[in-house]
């Protein structure tokens, strides 16, 4: 079995996450899908790290995790703020930018 199998699964997970962002309306699920995409990228980093034989990829994955954490914190705060004013967590309801 080849290490690039991990890359294939990473691509699949990433694609699934992307579809989820588009098709799901619940803001929290959308966020989870984004997390899924980030994790898929992380898996690629780790695999590349293994293929290249150094730890740079793992450090990158570490950074990605921190950024993801930041993003989740801020994003969820935004969701809470929106929910408080609109009583809805659907991203379709927050479509006021059109006008």
């Amino acid at each position: 079995m080849d290490a690039s199998n991990y890359l294939y699964i990473s691509a699949l997970l990433f694609t699934i996450g992307a579809v989820g962002v588009v098709v799901r309306r619940n803001a929290i699920v959308v966020f989870m899908c984004i997390e899924l995409m980030l994790n898929a990228a992380n898996l690629s980093f780790v695999t590349f790290s293994r293929i290249n034989g150094n730890l740079d990829g793992q450090v990158m994955a570490f950074f990605t995790m921190v950024v993801a954490a930041c993003e989740v914190v801020v994003g969820l705060a935004i969701i809470v703020a929106i929910y408080r004013s609109r009583r809805s967590a659907s991203v379709d309801d927050a479509s006021l930018l059109k006008r």
Binding site: A18, V21, V22, V23, R25, V30, V91, D92, A94, S95, L96, L97, K98, R99
Partner: peptide, 10 residues
């Protein structure tokens, strides 16, 4: 430009 975040994501 329909205001829906999801279509932008698409």
């Amino acid at each position: 430009q329909n205001g829906f975040v999801r279509s932008y994501a698409a």
